[in-house]
Write a protein that binds this DNA or RNA. Sequence first.
DNA 1: TAAAGGATTTTCT
DNA 2: GAAAATCCTTTAC
Length: 197
Amino acid sequence: MRSRDGSPPARQRALPAAFYDRATELVARELLGAELEHRTARGTARGRIVETEAYLGPHDPACHAVAGLTRRTKHLHGPPGRAYVYFVYGMHWCVNAVTLEEGHGSAVLIRALEPLVGLDLMRSRRKVERDRDLTNGPAKLCAALGITGAQDGARLDRGALRILAGAPVPDERVLVTPRIGIRHAVDWPLRFVVKEA
DNA sequence: TAAAGGATTTTCT
DNA sequence: GAAAATCCTTTAC
């Protein structure tokens, strides 16, 4: 399906870099409903973003920017709209979308997707019994989409790893809570989840 | 259904 | 040398 001028339909267009140059909590909220897509030689995999977490910068005790500018956090401090992909617990990758101006060190962690495209490819990358377990965690979705450190620093508005605009999620469908699963917990409402239908 | 513990290696102190 | 923005399995109730 294409519009008259030949451009792709709006809901398949990549979000522009300017989308990410705003308050990190707002970007985290508005990324719900957008679609994360990774195109590789093995094919395309895409999912709808249904859970995010905001990491605000060096003043946020749980944000990797507290370490300052290091080799690991180089792209976290990069310009808005880049991927920050990091390795944790000796075996897992997690992907973030960098927010705000270069040097700030803030980002949104993508915590969960609803699988949309490339289900067979996801199943081949993750051996799970139920499809609902393919992408319901930040490291699971990276495995399902084939995201690794090779994508660290990639532009999200063009290229193989992109975030596409999707159907907006109304407020009544969004649950807002503090972040989970981290050592330096704070009470701030920085986690955004699309409630199940 | 929930809680606990192990896997495994990069990163920074 | 310690901790880590996790996942999976096992164990307990």
